[in-house]
Design a protein around this nucleic acid. Structure first.
Ligand SMILES: [Zn+2]
Ligand SMILES: [Zn+2]
Ligand SMILES: [Zn+2]
Ligand SMILES: [Zn+2]
Lengths: 152, 152
DNA sequence: GGCATGACGGTTATGCCATAACATGATGTT
DNA sequence: AACATCATGTTATGGCATAACCGTCATGCC
């Protein structure tokens, strides 16, 4: 995410939280900034390291509490298969997305694919299962890296 | 999994490994048995605890090495969102499946849904992404538990 | 003002998940 | 026997996540 996008997302988050009566405090905002500014997912402890630049002696609970808040507000997502977190690219409305995770370059792209959601919902109806939180993470190789492998 | 099914799965695993020239050793077999005999997913450390009944002083690497082998052979699956493992219900052929994970009773059911696979593959083609391992885990409430909630 | 209430975050400690690194033992081949 | 290879034992360590307790600050009510 570039600086302009970052500003926009942070502004949006601010507005969203105000509307909901949720408090986007300094700590929480810092964590969101770090995640959005990063070009790859960050683990809680990576966030912790980066916080040392601006915060005196931060500890794991500080980070995890902020992450919990941001997850509740839908401003970030957790990648279960990586034990890491990413900023959401379109937090305006609640949604469930799918993630393409490249094992070569580490890039993660968030996707909101209607056909996939439909197929999941169809399966749920057939089994009577009620999904609260779908985890869809595709681990593999992105188009760029696949091309490199062929040419290189 | 009941005792009869367990015997069948273990026999199948034995045969499968022999065919592939892979060695289903005592340790590996024990871990597979424990997973298949359990009615819910087990973490590596839960497996470790149960191994103490039959093995002297087992350590984490013992379990993790067995798990790695069984994963490679497709005899078990890892549930990323639970940090736990389950025995595969149909290991005869390689496959990628989806999991319905009930947060109330802890039951996990493995599903191999063609429509979901298709929708994932369509999305891959559209993006040029090559998936090596899809993770699809639906966290929610199973039909049984949902019913209990309504009546109770 | 005085005081309860509740959200937020600092601090310390702990527990679970997973692997690195090295030593030993089992198995099969020549 | 000598050797290569794979599996396992053993010890130590690193990464992920939370429990429990306490101080602080804002808010609302008497
Ligand atoms: Zn999102
Ligand atoms: Zn890539
Ligand atoms: Zn399976
Ligand atoms: Zn259930």
């Amino acid at each position: 995410m570039n600086k302009k996008q970052l500003t926009k997302v942070l502004g949006g988050a601010e507005k969203l939280c105000r509307k909901r009566g949720a408090r986007l405090t300094a700590r929480r905002r810092t964590v969101l900034e770090l995640l959005c500014a990063s070009d790859k997912p960050l683990s809680a402890y990576e966030i912790l390291d980066r916080m040392r630049a601006t915060t005196r002696n931060p500890a794991p609970p500080t980070v995890y509490r902020a992450l919990d808040f941001l997850l509740e507000q839908g401003l970030i997502h957790k990648l279960e298969s990586l034990h890491a977190f990413v900023g959401c690219t379109h937090p305006e409305h609640p949604h469930s997305s799918q993630f393409l995770i490249c094992g070569d370059c580490g890039e993660v792209s968030e996707m909101e694919n209607e056909a996939i959601l439909q197929s999941l919902q169809t399966a749920e109806r057939a089994t009577g299962f009620k999904t609260r939180h779908p985890v869809v993470e595709l681990l593999g190789t992105c188009a760029q890296c696949a091309e490199k492998h062929q040419s290189g």
